[in-house]
Design a protein around this nucleic acid. Structure first.
Length: 1124
RNA sequence: GCGGGCGUGGCGAAAUUGGCAGACGCACUAGACUUAGGAUCUAGCGCCGCAAGGCAUGGGGGUUCAAGUCCCUCCGCCCGCACCA
């Protein structure tokens, strides 16, 4: 009988299906094992050979586990909602359902040919209402839950409502005044339904909030991030703007810490875990409040701060004096003398035509009244305030130093004739010139130029987030995000224009531009903050390198130790103060957190790590900040303004969203006449007015994102048809979670993070027993394509000349493009060209010439050899080309790149299977190399696997088709071959090294052929071992051995170690580490005996020349090394 | 820039714990059988060398009796993240 894989595959595929041999039930007598492939999205293009790589691997593993006695769940289904089908619907009007069903049919057809052991009775599709009913149900659970941080788990929102009704926000640590105002239990009960719902929305795990989307006016739709290129829509290149819209979110950030900690319990690659860790981006630090400088009125004090000398300012004192006197000044204002009060009422504001302030700090003094611009101090002499002991003359001298003139009036004068006093003051003021902040006399100085920002006037503060509180003494400026909510109130009138211009500039730029920008940009707000530790007055800037969404959106900049801060300081001429001495740690960077603190007051001399701790304690002690853990991860957007997704089970009553009762699930996606967007930012569903309008209210028209259905599908496989629950509890308890999950690394931070969150959420609610959904994760590598390129030279006056790559390799071609061939190349090529070219043409070849290479479809090539006729027919432009062959063959250059249609290098598994069979295809996919490595698909090697299968078949049937398996007893040598193979296979399958398994099958087969072994005792176990890899041929040969049951129900043969024990070993004998001889010794021989024999050996003697070796290394069963 | 991975013949690769580098397969070369060969079988196949032997796992250095494997350093490629304070 000949090996006819087509007949065999067809026969068994049908039998397996008829008998349902891959059907699996919850069999409690066996241990369970769950092997899962990542949910495929069925694209219209079908599978290429890269897709099934992981499927083959997981199928082999699943089959192996079955043979080892496990009850294996190994299902398959489809992530069927998605953009491509919707896009196709917009373009052609074909309903996405139709497109998707067709694509799924193609996928199943292709998968079916490969011989997978999926239990298709468990297939699920996310777009099936009986499936998405439960996606909607889980959403309702999320909506109806909040995260209780005290218990560190999600629970029903009712417990939160009860808490509010009992004690309001009192003692509720989770309450954040940014979200809503505090309230008492009584207030809560008094709130309207709407007020209550708004408050609860800040706690629900599925909630609504406003966020920016990519709005494209021209297309009338919201675009996904990858539909936007360079700030324009990918389709049509229309402008895209950021627009705020109310959207659904999942509060995944509540799970950040658990998602992070959970990674430690998982058997995933470090790369994968790191990607998730990075994405979550936990950082520990502190939020620290910085006061703003100005808490009195504007123009106060003298600018004596040297670091800011010459800059616009209105702080006319120094930090120490400020701190010492500010409270006194405030007190004086509240408690003026009678005379002062009379004068103030006549001078206040600009009653005299000049701006007058009272009790205003200048240097270390607090004059009664001052006009800053005129540099005039007006004193009313009465009984001196008790706490103000200085003599008048001293004060006058000090003020003169600051450029101020002093005029004095007695209390009596004020009481006697206030008009005269005011008039005298007015005349004096009018006579004085305006003086600008830096002391120069100027006509143009206006009060506005010196005016503080609203927040400074209000005495506000700005919070920064820092992971390095130890460096605060080096903080010489502050930077806030351009989107920071305090920008307007931090901007002084004088800086208004600069700030506005900067914000306009920032808004004009896309996120990507902002990320790629390396230039330092920023703008000064005009405001200053006070460093709480050294009192330094530090300017506040805006810069786009600070992100609004991270931390507080504000940083204290430490230019000495932060690269970006340093660049910014350089650009804006800001001071740099070193705070860490890293001299004893050469090459250390700030991230290393090493060094000794300097210029840092009480931290001086401490190691960085201690300083961080000390500072955190100090900050909390002073009550100016607190420890804070920050996450980079944001809450997950859960709204899509699309048609082809799960509808939300939500209706609006007025403006408030309400969940539909579970009894109304599923909310079925309605048929629509047009898939075009509504145009107003809502999804195409908005046009289905009949569907949208319900007795309970208007339906939500957004749909759920692609990850909704794929975040829990692995649970549905456990109980795919259950109409009463997403899966029955006893089935979940049996299957637990996925033991082995195989898929591409592209899902590292999307699917795999969302699924983990959903799983933890369902765990919190008691629906699943496990914390993590995927215990072991393996990423298969990509299969790349091998594109084939044809070299072409185009002379200026002639036809293009195509040159076989085998010839190109022998010459030095200039870079592609216009170029001139060097002398040797021309010499090499001319004899080849001569016979085919005219004289004129031939000469044109010597001058400047166009050199390029063009892709050919790989179907026109056999290995690297091109079928020139097919190539010419493909594109008319190749028709008149002249082809220079080498040895009657024209070869192409093979280049490894991504397998894709556009590169004409796609290999379709159907074609391979048609030619070689599914068994061969499966084994070759595995033979290519390690599962997790990317590797090019190269048909050339497949012949080796094909040959192996035929040789294996030959062990059973001779070349005339006669059956040759005998019942003769096997020899020890034959058993040794078998058990050596079984051992290697068991080990390698466990570590998913399927490539070496295939090698071992080849080695084993070759050895059995050498031994002329055709014995049942050897072949029968081998057939079982081969079954996971090549299920068809194994089943056929198993039947030929007389079995009526399936090989896939057999038991994996046990390794018999007794056939593997060796009595002797041929030692490699090395001299100084180089192998010079091989000598067999019995394994029970002692080292001394071996040593004597080795040293007496002729070859060894030649090297040692009879001398006693310096050292004799003997590793039993491994090696002998003689050191001389 | 940061994080992870990788670098071994003409090609895909193997070497699981430091112990004979290149198993297995492709391609290639020679031969056998054959009406024929894109079948099958035999032999060869890292590089230099007639040979003895020498040199070889991206480069350089180190540890060791012994290094593809461990350490340091540099280079290159791939993947992910990217102003995350």
């Amino acid at each position: 009988m000949e090996f006819d894989f087509r007949a065999i595959e067809q026969k068994w595929r049908k039998q397996w299906e008829d008998n349902g041999i891959y059907r699996v039930t919850e069999d409690t007598t066996k241990p369970k094992y769950y092997v899962l492939d990542m949910f495929p999205y069925p694209s219209g293009a079908g599978l290429h050979v890269g897709h099934p790589l992981g499927y083959v691997a997981s199928d082999i593993y699943a089959r192996y586990k079955r043979l080892k006695g496990f009850n294996v769940l190994h299902p398959m289904g489809f992530d069927a909602f998605g953009l491509p089908a919707e896009q196709y619907a917009i373009e052609t009007g074909t309903p996405p359902q139709v497109t998707t069903d067709k694509a799924i049919a193609t996928y199943k057809e292709q998968l079916g040919k490969i011989g997978f052991s999926y239990d298709w009775s468990r297939e699920v599709k996310t777009c099936d209402p009986s499936y998405y009913k439960w996606t909607q149900w889980i959403f309702l659970q999320l909506f109806g839950s909040w995260y209780n941080r005290e218990k560190d788990k999600a629970e029903n929102i009712d417990t939160l409502i009860a808490r509010f009704a009992h004690s309001g926000t009192d003692g509720f640590a989770q309450f954040d005044k940014e979200d809503h105002a505090p309230f008492t239990a009584a207030e809560w009960k008094g709130f309207s339904e709407e007020e209550q719902q708004h408050i609860l929305m800040h706690y629900r795990l599925a909630y609504q909030s406003y966020s920016e989307v990519n709005w494209c006016e021209a297309l009338g739709t919201v675009l996904a991030n990858d539909e936007v290129k360079d700030g324009k829509s990918e389709r049509g290149g229309y402008p895209v703007e950021r627009r705020k819209m109310r959207q659904w979110f999942l509060r995944i950030t509540e799970y950040s810490d658990r998602l992070l900690r959970g990674l430690d319990t998982l058997d995933w690659s470090e790369a994968m875990k790191d990607m998730q860790r990075n994405w979550i981006g936990r950082s520990e630090g502190a939020i620290i409040q910085f006061n703003l400088t100005q808490t009195l009125s504007k123009g106060e004090g003298l600018n004596t701060n040297t670091t800011n000398a010459g800059k616009p300012g209105f702080y006319h004192t120094d930090p120490l004096s400020w701190n010492a006197n500010i409270d006194k000044a405030k007190q004086h204002r509240l408690d003026p003398t009678e005379a002062e009060e009379i004068v103030w009422q006549r001078l206040r504001g600009s009653a005299t035509g000049h701006k007058i302030r009272r009790q205003h700090l200048i240097g270390s003094y607090i004059p009664d009244f001052v006009c800053i611009i005129k540099r005039l101090v007006i004193e009313i002499d009465g009984p001196i305030h008790d706490d103000q002991v200085e003599a008048d003359q001293e004060r006058t001298d000090e003020l003169k130093q600051h450029g101020f003139e002093v005029i004095r009036f007695k209390n009596e004068a004020v009481f006697a004739d206030i008009d005269a006093v005011v008039n005298a003051i007015k005349i004096k003021l009018d006579s004085l010139p305006d003086v600008s902040y830096d002391g120069t006399i100027s006509e143009e100085v206006s009060e506005d130029a010196l005016a503080p920002s609203p927040l400074e006037r209000a005495g506000g503060e700005v919070a920064v987030f820092t992971t390095r509180p130890d460096t605060i003494f080096g903080a010489t400026f502050m930077v806030i995000a351009p989107e920071h909510e305090l920008v307007a109130s931090l901007t002084t009138p004088a800086q208004q224009k600069e700030v506005d211009d900067y914000i306009t500039y920032v808004k004009s730029r896309s996120d990507i531009e902002r990320q790629q920008e390396k230039r330092v940009t920023g703008a000064f707000t005009g405001s200053y903050a006070l460093n709480p530790f050294n009192g330094a007055r530090i300017p506040i800037y805006l810069a786009e390198y600070v992100l609004a969404g991270y931390g507080t959106g504000a940083i204290m900049a430490v230019p000495a130790d932060d690269e970006r801060d340093r660049k910014f300081a350089e650009k804006f001429g800001l001071p740099v103060v070193e705070v860490i001495d890293k001299s004893m740690y050469p090459g250390a960077t700030i991230e290393d957190k090493v060094g000794k603190m300097i210029n840092s007051d009480f931290l001086n001399g401490m190691e960085v790590k201690d300083a961080i701790k000390a500072m955190l304690e100090k900050v909390e002690e002073l009550g100016i900040g607190k420890r804070q853990v920050n996450y980079r991860q944001r809450d997950a957007g859960y709204s899509r303004q699309r048609y082809w997704g799960e509808p939300f089970p939500i209706v609006y009553k007025g403006d408030l969203p309400y969940p539909l009762p579970v009894s109304e699930l599923p909310v079925v996606l309605p048929d629509v006449t047009s898939y075009k967007p509504s145009g107003d930012g809502r999804s195409p569903l908005a046009n289905a007015t009949e569907w949208v309008t319900t007795p309970q209210g208007q339906r939500e028209t957004d749909t759920m994102p692609g990850y909704a259905g794929s975040s829990w599908y692995f649970l549905r496989y456990m109980d795919p048809k259950n109409p009463d629950a997403f899966a029955a509890k006893e089935k979940i308890d049996y299957w637990q979670n996925v033991d082995l999950y195989l898929g591409g690394s592209e899902h590292a931070v999307g699917h795999l993070l969302y699924s983990r969150m959903w799983h933890k959420f369902l765990h919190d609610l008691g629906y699943v027993p496990t914390e993590e959904p995927f215990q072991k994760l393996v990423n298969q590598g990509m299969i790349q394509g091998v594109s084939k390129y044809v070299y072409r030279l185009i002379p200026q006056n002639g036809k293009p000349i195509y040159i076989s790559y085998s010839l190109v390799k022998r010459i030095q071609l200039p870079p592609l493009g216009m170029g001139i061939l060097d002398f040797q190349s021309v010499n090499f090529l001319l004899p080849l060209l001569q016979p085919v070219l005219s004289q004129e043409h031939y000469l044109g070849f010597i001058g400047e010439i166009w050199i390029d290479k063009v892709k050919t479809d790989i179907s026109f090539t056999d290995n690297d050899t091109l079928n020139i006729d097919q190539f010419k027919q493909w594109r008319t432009e190749y028709n008149d080309g002249i082809f220079i062959l080498d040895d009657d063959r024209f070869t192409c250059e093979p280049i490894v790149e991504k397998m894709s249609k556009s590169k004409y290098n796609v290999v379709n598994p159907d074609v391979v299977i048609e030619k070689y069979g599914a068994d061969c295809f499966r084994m070759f996919e595995m033979f290519l190399g390690p599962l997790d490595q990317s590797k090019p698909w190269d048909d050339q090697g497949i012949g080796g696997v094909e040959k192996f299968l035929r040789k294996f078949w030959r062990l059973f049937y001779d070349d005339k088709g006669g059956y040759r398996v005998s019942d003769e007893a096997a020899t020890d040598a034959e058993y040794k071959v078998l058990h050596k193979t079984l051992k290697k296979l068991s080990e390698d399958i466990e570590r998913l090294a399927f490539n070496t398994c295939v090698s071992q099958f080849m080695i084993c087969t070759n050895e059995l052929i050498d031994l002329k072994c055709t014995k049942r005792a050897i072949l029968e176990p081998l057939v079982i071992a081969l079954a996971p890899f090549a299920p068809f041929i194994s089943e056929e040969l198993w039947a030929s051995l007389g079995h009526s049951d399936s090989v896939h129900k057999a038991v994996f043969p046990k390794v018999e170690e007794k056939y593997l024990v060796e009595s002797s070993f041929t030692y490699p004998i090395s001299i100084n580490g180089k192998v010079r001889a091989n000598l067999p010794f019995a394994l029970d021989l002692s080292e001394a005996d071996v040593k004597a024999a080795v040293l007496a050996n002729e070859i060894v003697l030649k090297w040692t020349e009879g001398k006693e070796p310096k050292k004799f290394i003997f590793v039993k069963g491994r090696i002998v090394n003689v050191v001389i």
